[in-house]
Amino acid sequence: MIPFYIGATLVKVLVVFSATLLMIMAMTLAERRVSAFMQYRLGPNRVGWGGILQPVADGLKFILKEDIIPDKADRPIYLMAPVITMVPALMTMAVIPFGAPLQVGEYMVPLQIADLNIGLLYILALTSVGVYGIVLAGWGSGSKYPLLGGLRSSAQLISYELAMGLSLIGVIMITGGLTFGEIVAYQQETGWNIWKQPLAALIFLIAIFAETNRLPFDMTEAEQELVGGYHTEYSSFKFAMFFMSEYANMITASAFMVSLFFGGWDVPFVDEAALGNLGVGLSVLAFLAKVGFFLFLYIWVRWTFPRFRYDQLMRLGWKVLLPLALANVFLTGLYLVWKA
């Protein structure tokens, strides 16, 4: 008989993992449908009911396509890169709390796989490792466009990681904790962090767009200049892995955003604990709805704005966001000193 908490953790891992994969599938469809709607089109609506089986068809197509390895590619690195991108993208969901603690019999199961005492840093560390996938894909393809895309992306990701990390510091300062559990609990008591750290939220929002390589910051792909960027030379399932990890990163970033600034699974004006397991369900739904909004925002922004030029991107990162984030840390510090 396995101890209850190990079993519960395994179940949670399974649920989170499959939910993430399902959301990735849903996102690929949503991206196409929303973009179509914004362009007065209908989008894919023929596979399955209203097109909901389209991701399955796409996945099948990816698996069945010919897997090409370019002659000039550096084989070990070329093969390793999609894995390096994919694994951190899926691992980051582990520390995100996605609901109020669930009551199962006599146990309280926190709806979070692991509440690490370095939760925020864990995510930052994993996303910074994810950079390697892109850089190595660019280099390992043995082709110039992927290389350019990879180099651009590494510079971009490092630049925006700084602004992102600094914007988090404000939140950490007012919350006084690095774990997601503490941050969400704090927001439940005193209201969402967006009201207290609006500047940090804005900087963080911009930074996660840059971190996930989404428009208007998709310098790594930039079809018009770089063909497909780092995944130009990838085909078949290896391409699918890049594709999926992009969406997985978006999901994580949205969940991150929601947990930090929008109260995590907190349902406004409702006391989840008083409602028992109904409240738990409500909180999970609230979390999903909030994450869904940010995922929609990703798509929405993508089909609204043109791409930044590379120098504009760097200027925004270093000369605007970084000083703003520093100023935010400073002001938060002043406020805390004044309060204390």
Binding site: L124, A125, S128, V129, V131, Y132, V135, L136, W139, S154, L157, I158, E161
Partner: peptide, 8 residues
């Protein structure tokens, strides 16, 4: 995450 990316 940071230094080795610069190395690369």
């Amino acid at each position: 995450g940071a230094i080795m990316v610069l190395f690369l």
